[in-house]
């Protein structure tokens, strides 16, 4: 019994994934890195409203979006809330950092005549 286990463990492949040498293929649909596409965003604030951790701040008049990676809980609520699909969760994970990254972008101010809300 024990001998058979020893032999089978001796000749089977190691269970360990040699992580830094070969990194694993990210699984499809993994809720990893949050990415915003700046061009598409209309600053409707739907993502900020739905975020359970208040990690996203949207200022609608000023057209700015602030994302706090450190508060993010990777629940993908923002991606579900965004009707234009400009928040996506990529299947790779966020790498560790030495300093808090600042993530912020703003849109060009739109003339009042054009400012018809595309998504509410």
């Amino acid at each position: 019994m024990m001998l058979s286990r020893v032999l089978s463990n001796l000749f089977s492949r190691p269970a360990t994934r040699p992580f830094p040498k070969t990194s694993r293929e990210p699984v499809e649909g993994y809720r990893g890195a949050v990415e915003f596409s700046q061009e598409e965003c209309v600053f409707c604030g739907a993502c900020a409203l739905r975020c359970p951790a208040n990690a996203i701040e949207v200022d609608r008049p000023a057209k700015t979006l602030k994302f706090d990676l450190f508060k993010c809980i990777h629940c993908a609520c923002c991606a579900e809330a965004c009707k234009r699909g400009c928040v996506q969760l990529r299947s790779a994970y966020h790498p560790p950092v030495y300093q808090k990254p600042e993530f912020e972008f703003s849109g060009a101010p739109v003339l009042a005549a054009e400012a018809s809300p595309a998504t509410e």
Binding site: F70, C72, H74, C75, Y93, H94, P96, V97, Q99, K100
Partner: peptide, 8 residues
Amino acid sequence: VWVPGCAP
């Protein structure tokens, strides 16, 4: 060092 994620 900061490791973001929930859970990383």
